[in-house]
Design a binder for these strands. Structure first.
Lengths: 168, 168
DNA sequence: GTAACTGCAAAAACTTTGCTGAGTT
DNA sequence: AACTCAGCAAAGTTTTTGCAGTTAC
């Protein structure tokens, strides 16, 4: 077991503890479903759709229902533990990481991946926003991922996919 | 009629001419529906969902069908004349303005408005993106719009609205 | 014990598709 | 005249809702 895994495990555990605490504060029950769903979201780097998350968590908890995924994600988002990504296309995508917040958006396949970048973190929220109160800034970088850039141009068919997504 | 309106009309006309040209190039027919839908999108500042656009255009063209809206928006997007905004929530939102590309995202009501900001335009696309080819950068500023900031905290009910949106 | 929650099934909301008659070039 | 397209209706996908039994506290 490497150092990195150990660190990852600690991070997940800490966040799960935090979830427990926030649930208690909010008068919400701590259920196995909530723990499993949150943990699954923390353990992955991609940004699963509700459907994709359902498939994953269901592997370990076969009785889980899709409706619970929806309800849970909404609850977690309300607690501020999870964020719903702005996406193009029809399915929602969730991110368990509330800190890092820049994204690489591939125009070829529509996938979104996280991008940590201290330089971008330093962009100051603009003032003079006509009444809008800025809280936090996130940068979207649009372009082509390695796979799509490699593929032929005209840019590979804009990925009108069905159902579950392969990756991020 | 003010100077500003005159300018606006000129801009719309120029873009509509451009649409005609691009349609011809692409072997696509120039239909009244396409003109009306594109014009409606250019004439508004909000980012209408297909449904909202349908309501608006239908006022002048009652025979219009919602399926045509979907097909037309997809066609316009393919021509690069219109862009689909990354949104949170379930309905798509379109923007007839392909240039300006920063957004104010209200965490209270989920509305997204355009934000022109030369300072943000100057942010250089980062290099070192592990194979990702950056084409263009857009900044999302998350916070509270004037209405939601005014309303009580805990931040006004996360706006799980039905159907058509009032504004941007 | 009580309040909150899950799973289910049905419904609602949103989007796509195939077809036919009509419009554009 | 050939080709493309709009409108329609039906189907497909994603999300929400109501409820009955179960679980967390």
């Amino acid at each position: 077991v490497g150092t990195r895994d150990r660190r990852q495990r600690g991070r997940v555990a800490a966040r799960v503890d935090h979830l427990v605490e926030r649930c208690r504060q909010a008068g919400m029950n701590v259920t196995p479903q909530r723990l499993a769903i949150y943990r699954a979201l923390l353990e992955t780097d991609d940004h699963p759709s509700p459907e994709a998350l359902y498939e994953r968590v269901r592997a370990a908890m076969p009785s889980l229902s899709l409706a619970t995924i929806y309800k849970t994600l909404e609850a977690l988002a309300r607690l501020g533990l999870v964020s719903e990504l702005p996406t193009t296309g029809k399915a929602r995508r969730y991110d368990g990481n509330v800190d890092r917040h820049h994204h690489l958006v591939c125009l070829g396949c529509n996938r979104v991946s996280d991008h940590a970048d201290p330089a971008l973190d330093r962009i100051p929220p603009p003032s003079r926003l006509r009444g809008f109160t800025a809280q936090h800034v996130s940068v979207h970088i649009h372009g082509l991922c390695a796979a799509c850039a490699g593929a032929a141009r005209p840019p590979s068919p804009p990925a009108r996919r069905k159902s579950t997504w392969p990756g991020t």
